[in-house]
């Protein structure tokens, strides 16, 4: 069990309002992605251990930690070291792969059924999730009972950005449908780029990149071959569905098991190292 999971277990030792208080605080600390995850979880371990001890002594988490948890959390965050570059890859690389996986597999299934895909649709598929992932951190802090002014400002900016984004999306004129050959070549190039990136990354971040390298080596050529092959449509769609589910499962596994850079590198961190 890694420190992230251990902290989730510690949280379960708190009850009622204490648990709600701690959940909000920890959610806020974890939502700030610019800090070193190991240092952050080490801090969360300290805070939860003390909250559990305070609860045993009959002290509420609010009385123990303070009436303005957001201000305290901001001060704590300001003292934590910055996230190493590899941690950003850990956060976003599975998303990049699974996002392209969804677009790629869904696009091929549309082509198989004779549907057309234009640039607008493709842009919507690719940009929409990236945009929402980028905007999500702006909603941090809304869970606290007392919402600070800066939190309200951040959330308001996020809402304006979302409205502006949709306005731009609707303002783009309809483009003609893409030709099958263009889509095939484009998809092939994108998969090749992902294969090369995952191959290079697999030397340092083995557990992060190697599964995706294998995934794309199998799924890329197989899915493209379905376009020219003589497989019955039903079987081809089932195969594509299997590819899509496998990609989503891999993304989910990595999101729940790779919390720290050393885990992505394939190493283990013992209690003595901490």
């Amino acid at each position: 069990m890694d420190l992230f999971t251990e902290n989730d277990e510690r949280l379960k030792q708190l009850h009622g309002l204490n648990k709600m208080y701690a959940e909000t605080l920890i959610g806020y600390l974890r939502a700030y992605r610019g800090k070193d995850a190991l240092a952050r979880e080490d801090t969360i371990e300290d805070l939860l251990t003390d909250m559990v001890a305070a609860q045993a002594d009959g002290i509420t988490s609010k009385d123990h930690f303070g009436k303005d948890p957001q201000a305290a959390a901001d001060e704590i965050l300001s003292e934590l070291p910055r996230a190493p570059k590899a941690q950003w890859l850990l956060l976003y690389w599975p998303l990049v792969n699974s996002l392209w996986d969804l677009v790629f597999v869904f696009g091929i299934s549309l082509l198989l059924t004779g549907e057309t895909v234009n640039v607008n649709t493709l842009l919507g598929w690719l940009v929409l999730p990236v945009f929402f992932i980028a905007v999500a951190p702006l909603f941090r802090g809304l869970g606290f009972n007392h919402i600070q002014r800066k939190t309200k400002w951040r959330a308001s900016i996020a809402l304006v950005l979302i409205i502006a984004f949709y306005a731009v999306l609707f303002a783009i004129p309809d483009m003609p449908a893409l030709k099958m050959s263009v889509l095939q070549t484009g998809s092939g190039v994108a998969v090749a780029i992902l294969v090369v990136c995952n191959l290079v990354m697999s030397f340092s971040l083995r557990r992060l990149a190697l599964p995706w390298l294998l995934y794309w080596l199998i799924v890329g050529p197989s899915a493209l071959a379905l376009l020219g092959g003589g497989l019955p449509l039903g079987l081809a769609v089932v195969l594509l569905l299997v590819f899509m589910v496998a990609g989503a499962a891999l993304n989910m596994y990595q999101s729940t098991h790779l919390h720290f850079v050393f885990q992505a590198q394939g190493g283990k961190r013992s209690q003595a190292d901490r």
């Binding site: 801090t43 303070g66 009436k67 959390a73 704590i76 300001s78």
Partner: peptide, 17 residues
């Protein structure tokens, strides 16, 4: 008096840094 951990913990981090 009673000083909350939210006040003390950031100071401990700062002193470590």
């Amino acid at each position: 008096g009673v000083i909350p951990e939210g006040t003390v913990y950031p100071l401990l981090l700062k002193m470590q840094r």
